Amino acid sequence: MHEMSLCESVLQVLETEAKRQQFHQVKTVWLEIGAMSGVEIEAMRFCFDVIVRNTLADGATLQVIEVPAEAWCLDCAQTVKIQQRYDTCPHCGSCQLQVIRGEEMRIKELEVA
């Protein structure tokens, strides 16, 4: 379950930013998670609650913003929505798609005190 190590990394970022920006409590964390990131959102929620216990984010709410996957078609020069890697272009049928969005996971916003 790599979601546990992802949550540990998120907590490390929170602790670093708390020192840098001088806040003491995290109330809400908004995470953007791409559809093709390989992250199981429900596992992420569970792990987040476990990892943040007895930390500055204890009791914080995790809000997940799901980012759809998109690719650029090299043949017809269109941005298209995809469901998985190696989908074909819905416009021209090409297999020449370059993923441009949907693989990321990032902290978008924090509510702190």
Rank of each mutant, 00 (worst) to 15 (best):
V29N: 03
K27M: 03
V29I: 10
F48K: 04
T28G: 04
V50L: 15
N54R: 10
E40C: 12
G38L: 10
V52T: 14
V52P: 13
F23C: 09
N54K: 13
L31H: 02
F23L: 10
R53H: 05
Q25E: 11
I51F: 07
E42F: 13
V26D: 02
I41G: 06
V52N: 08
F23E: 06
L31I: 07
V29W: 00
M44A: 09
W30P: 00
V26C: 05
V26Q: 04
E42G: 10
E42P: 14
L31C: 07
M36E: 08
E32K: 10
N54G: 05
E40T: 09
F46S: 14
I51M: 11
H24F: 06
R53C: 03
R45H: 14
G34N: 06
A35M: 07
V39Q: 01
K27S: 04
M44Y: 00
E42Q: 15
E42T: 12
F46P: 10
I51K: 05
G38V: 08
G38W: 04
V50C: 14
Q25L: 06
A35F: 01
V52Q: 07
K27F: 03
F48Q: 06
C47I: 08
T55H: 06
E32G: 09
M36Q: 13
S37P: 05
R45L: 12
L56A: 03
E40V: 12
